[in-house]
């Protein structure tokens, strides 16, 4: 039983947002093989519905803490595709001035707080950002994304407990893509029902089909409303799947191709497209119009990144400490 589609413009926008991520990531992979992007590159392909559904429920002044697989979250939180691409090129026009790279996208104006590449390391930060809002009397929400692998970390348990004790306005979103790098959920958790972990801290929690953007949005909207109302933290498990390798160095020996193909068949983009066509809201021309907009955005991002400049080596030591005017 699917959640009803939202109104037409919004439903089409959800498709647009997911396609922005998909095409951006495909281009990033291509540029990686051309060695224009280096370091680690973790693609979000297959998981787009989670970021798209959750971000649709946020206000511009809400905060997001992401993981090292965060290009899509940054993009949908309002960080420009151009500044993300430039960051991955290592250019000083990048959203982190080329100091962070793919895993450390930051944008203070967009209230996008990384880009954290220590599994579980972003959860305490999210509790703190929410605590700051709570103390300041602001009705803002902090959303913290992490994978199911993070739930084996002590920082998950410590953060859930602290957030629940202090009733801080955080929405914890577990992106359960079934593999912590190459370790299947059944091999990393004694209790594979992840919702129960959160509930043990008396944090209201639920699981949602993370391949269904409409369902993710509905669940996130309800959770965000409670969090914003000052009712304390919430936990949402989005059951999803990563179509591509963990990073560009992954031979995927730990899962068989058949499993990947099965999940691809129920991918979030194809699924929403099917529903939109059935509703009579999308045809080939309309889809091509969306794809063309996305193609242009990605092409512009690549052009911006290519035109970007290298920070002079003389500036190597900047931004370690705040330069205090003397």
């Amino acid at each position: 039983m699917s959640d009803p589609l939202p109104e037409r413009e919004h439903a089409l926008d959800l498709l647009h947002q997911m396609l922005r991520i998909r095409r951006f990531e495909e281009k990033a992979a291509e540029l990686y093989t051309q060695e224009r992007i280096r370091g680690f590159l973790h693609l979000y392909i297959g998981e787009e519905a989670v970021a798209a559904g959750v971000m649709a429920t946020l206000r511009p002044d809400d905060a997001v803490v992401g993981t090292y697989r965060e290009h899509g979250h940054a993009l949908l939180k309002g960080v420009s595709a151009a500044s993300i691409m430039a960051e991955m090129f290592g250019k000083q026009e990048g959203c982190s001035r080329g100091r962070g790279g793919s895993m450390h996208l930051f944008d203070a104006k967009a209230r996008f707080y990384g880009g954290n590449a220590i599994v579980g390391g972003g959860l305490p930060l999210a509790v703190g950002l929410a605590l700051a809002d709570q103390r300041a009397g602001l009705s803002r929400v902090t959303v913290c994304f992490f994978g199911e692998g993070a739930m084996a970390e002590g920082e998950f348990h410590e953060s859930m407990n602290l957030a629940a004790l202090w009733r801080v306005p955080v929405l914890f979103v577990c992106e359960n893509n079934r593999y912590a790098m190459g370790t299947a959920l059944e091999r990393s958790e004694s209790e594979t029902d992840l919702v129960r972990h959160a509930e043990s801290y008396r944090v209201p929690a639920r699981a949602v089909d993370g391949m269904d953007v409409v369902a993710v949005e509905a669940a996130a909207r309800e959770a965000v409303e409670h969090v914003r109302a000052g009712e304390g933290p919430r936990f949402l498990e989005a059951q999803t799947y990563r179509f591509r390798a963990h990073s560009m160095f992954d031979a995927q020996l730990y899962r068989d191709k058949h499993e990947v193909e099965q999940w691809r068949g129920r991918g979030p983009i194809v699924r929403l497209q099917t529903r939109l066509r059935e509703a009579g809201w999308l045809d080939d021309d309309a889809l091509e119009a969306i794809e063309a907009r996305v193609r242009q955005e990605v092409a512009d991002a690549v052009a911006f990144a290519e035109a970007g400049t290298w920070e002079p080596v003389e500036e190597l030591l900047r931004d370690v400490y705040t330069e205090v005017p003397r």
Partner: peptide, 18 residues
Amino acid sequence: PLSESAFVGAGIGAAMGG
């Protein structure tokens, strides 16, 4: 609580939040 990582991290996050 006895959660050094969480409360130190929360302090860092709160500082980042103003």
